[in-house]
Design a binder for these strands. Structure first.
Lengths: 123, 123
DNA sequence: CCCCTTGTACTAGAGGCATAATACAATAGA
DNA sequence: TCTATTGTATTATGCCTCTAGTACAAGGGG
């Protein structure tokens, strides 16, 4: 049973998107696999101290994106076939790198400088 | 005279923040230096096809952050002393790298993998 | 001197995000 | 069967961002 205690919310991005991203990460890391159950809307709302309606919005998004499925009164479970997993990896990895590289180039950082800076901040 | 034609707005971040970031970048790149004039609020609004009030909000922010100064009816100019320049570099460089490294670690990417991925996306 | 631009301020409204408070049908479990 | 939980839906409120429209004092240039 997945929980949301470790999810630290920021004040920049919509909460319901941060929730969906969190579940995607758990899937990508193998911490959540197909069939794994998710707590009820109300339970998650309590874990995160947010409104149940916000949680419901997150589930709506996750269902639309295809990695969570809900059967009424039986709760929601993770669903991640090959294609879904690939899509999640793409979003979380390639998209992360792409936007970072774009920003780095915007301020004229060289590849060498970028690698050096990352090296400094890695530990 | 700085212009805003090259600034491509996204639909994720507040417009007035994107505007401030754009000016910071121009300063960091040396494309804008102390004394450089900025177009009027209304002129910039036209260049970006946004509302003058939004532009005014950006100026309020930029003045608060100290890299733009306005003298009534004479328009606004860039102001960037040593300390301001350092702060901008910190925000645009170190902050960029820091948040990227954090995200990369969230999905268990190794330093080596990250460098490889960046290398792929660099060109 | 007059007009136009400028910075600044204000009200009003739309849309997205989040909260608060309910409501209800369906089902699992005692 | 009764009760508690669950997913789902609705209405209202508040905040932030952005747009739209208007207003006004101050200064520059003809």
């Amino acid at each position: 049973m997945l929980n949301f205690y470790e999810l630290k919310l920021n004040h920049r991005d919509p909460v319901y998107m941060q929730m969906a991203l969190y579940v995607k990460r758990q899937i990508l890391l193998g911490h959540a696999v197909s069939g794994d159950r998710l707590p009820s809307r109300r339970e998650i709302a309590a874990q995160l101290s947010v409104n149940p309606n916000t949680v419901q919005k997150a589930f709506k998004l996750m269902e639309e994106e295809g990695f969570v499925r809900t059967s009424s009164t039986l709760g929601s479970v993770v669903y991640a076939d090959e294609e879904t997993l690939r899509r999640i990896e793409d979003e979380l990895t390639r998209e992360l790198v792409r936007s970072f590289v774009d920003s780095a180039k915007e301020i004229n950082l060289s590849f060498k400088t970028v690698v050096a800076l990352i090296g400094e901040h890695w530990d």
